[in-house]
Every structure is written in structure tokens, then in C-alpha cells.
Design a protein around this nucleic acid. Sequence first.
DNA 1: ATTATCTATAGATCTATAGATAATGC
DNA 2: ATTATCTATAGATCTATAGATAATGC
Lengths: 195, 195
Amino acid sequence: MVPGVREKQREETRRRLYEAALEVFRRDGVQTCRIDDIARIAEVSRAAFYFHFPTKDAVLLQLAHEGEEQLLKALEALPADHTLLQLLETVAGAQGTFWKDKRELVADAYGAVLRAIATVSDAEYFQSRNRFAGQLKRLQDKGLAIRDFAPEVMAESVLSSVMIIIIGWVRTPEAPLEQHLKKAAQVFLRSLKPD
Amino acid sequence: MVPGVREKQREETRRRLYEAALEVFRRDGVQTCRIDDIARIAEVSRAAFYFHFPTKDAVLLQLAHEGEEQLLKALEALPADHTLLQLLETVAGAQGTFWKDKRELVADAYGAVLRAIATVSDAEYFQSRNRFAGQLKRLQDKGLAIRDFAPEVMAESVLSSVMIIIIGWVRTPEAPLEQHLKKAAQVFLRSLKPD
DNA sequence: ATTATCTATAGATCTATAGATAATGC
DNA sequence: ATTATCTATAGATCTATAGATAATGC
């Protein structure tokens, strides 16, 4: 089904608002920035912003969601018989690559994710987490990962550690993030592989 | 030095605002609640709230800070020759005990902590993290913990995983949190102890 | 004719600040 | 006399909603 004129227009407006929002978030900070500035840059009324995004959090969640889509792609590109280490390095690497040039937004975006996790039940929204958890589960079933935790909890713990490493790295930007994350993956491996 | 009348009054007002804020946060949600309601319950003007707390985040940071103080006490009560497992169980247990009856606030409070980590350099604000990191460092020096990461990063990673477990648990309140966190401590042990 | 998308705007709420009051220091 | 704490309030910004416009479906 080909998208009509109206749908195309709506998506174009939404995209303009999204990009303007990220620009203003970075420039003025998420909490202190004015939505008026976002609307002005996107060349629509302020109310149009609310039509597309109920809150600033919704913009941050879309950003996090795009990061997750990158992660999903990377997970799908793994060979069927991947090892636990390969899986962990893929997760850490994909998140690192995505957030590397978005440091000003990492903490706010992940904060929004935590609030979303606590309140909404968005099973389908965070597909990549489920995918990651699914792959952990398969490794558990093969006896290649410990069974102490539900795979969802393990996935979320690994992801939270990855995010906190990136957020901490924001303050020491000269350090090599990729190397850091690769080492982290090895540490996760120690905790998650069976004896 | 005995506190004067003015100081006593200020601290009492601040405490009333703090408690009113937590009450309203829980009732209406941090993002959607009105500061007017907080001020009304605390029986001061709305501007008095801003005098004591520049933002809602400041209230959440004080809450997180109180959690950290509980953690600090628990860490100080450990024997000098504690094991890595004892240390990890203490951290997980203390955070679990503190947040157990504050589930509605965990995600917002930890989100505020992440933003604070990314922006301010509050070395002295989060004393307990430093204390935890110091104890990890001593274990590293004794050869009882791996040396792959700076102790601050290890401390933050463990704490972030603990927090994410608590935040995830918010959605399945019937599960036993303490048991969950104890198992988590054992998993951390696997990753942080030397071979 | 109906509906989705967006604008204009009224009313709610926030933030910044000038000023009041009472405690403190000299 | 000076200063810390708090109030009153003006102006800024947000949020909710009535209405305009143009695309869509019949």
C-alpha cells in the first residue's frame, strides 16, 4: 500500500520535529530547553509538537528506539551458532557505535528508558532487548550460559552496564570507548558463562 | 556549634517540602505533578520550594543520596578483612532494603542520578560510591578482585545492575526481591573475582 | 461527508525577581 | 546594619482544546 499525501506530510513533519528537538536538546539541555524553539526550527506551531510527541520523553524514547534498531540489526547479522562472547561483544559494540557521537543525550535518553520500563508494558517497543534475551535463552538451553536469571533480566543488566559505561565515559572523552566496551564484554562473559 | 533559630526553621521547612514532594511524586507522578500541590501540603509558598530545591531533580537526588547514606553505613559496618562476596551482597542488600518500599520512585530517582553523573562532578556528593570503589580497590590490591577496570567503573556497573534489577522488579512485585539481589551478588562475584 | 493534521489561543503552571520580615552579628 | 529566609507577583512557557483546512473514502 503506497502512502498517501497526508501520511507522507505527517511523517515529514514528525521527522523535522524530531531532528529539531535533538538539536535543541543538545544545545540547551533537555530539561531547560523551550519547545517553542523546537517548533520554530521545524517551522510548525508549538501545538504541532504536542500532536506528534506527547512529551519530551517521547522524543528521547524514539532516539533510544533507533539505537535499539541498530542493535537489532547487529544481532540479526550474527551467525546462528555464535558464542556468548560474540553476543556480548556485539551488544556492547553496537551501543557504543550508536551513542559515540551523541554523548550529550545518553543520560537523558537512558533515564527516559528506565521510566518507560518502570511504567509501560511495551513488549513490542523494545524488540532488540527481547531479541537479545532470546539469544541468551538459546545459549542457556544449549548449556552455554548460566541459568541463574531470567534471560530478560540478564539482557537488561548487561545493557544497563553498557549504558553506564558510556555515560561515565562522557566525562573522560579522551579515553577509547570501543576498547573499554570490549573489555566489559569479557567481564560479562566471566559472569554469564557456565563453570 | 548549636544551630540558631533561623537555621532550625530553614531545615524544618526544607524537610517538610522534601516529604511533601515525595508524597506528591508518588501520588501524581514526578513529571506530571504540580509544585503548587507540594507547597500547599508543606504550607509554604511555591517560591519557597524553589528556594530549597532548584528543580524536582534536586529532590530526587536527595532521595538517592539518602539511599547512598544507608549504603555507606552498611559498608562501614563490614569487617576489615571482608571478602568480595560479602562486599557485593552488602551493596545489593542495602539498596534493596532502601528501595523496597519506594518502588514508584526508583526509576525517576535513578534517572536523576544518571543525569547528575553525566553533568556535574559531585565527587563528595556520592560518598558511598567512592567508599564502595575504595573497598574494591583494596581487594584489587590484595589480588582478590580483577584489575581490568578502574574500581569506580566497577562500582558504578554493579550499582547500575542492582538498580535495574530493582526497577525491573517493580513490575513483578510478588517476586522476592532480596533473594533476587542475593543471586545477583553471586553473579557479580563470578565476573569480578580473579581466576 | 468524514477524518487527520495542524493552528490559534485561553487558561494553567512555572520561573525569575523585587521586596518583606525577622534573625544575626557588630 | 546586614543577611537569610520566605512571599507576592510579573512575565514566560506549557498544556488542553476549539476550530480551520485539506486529504480521504464513499
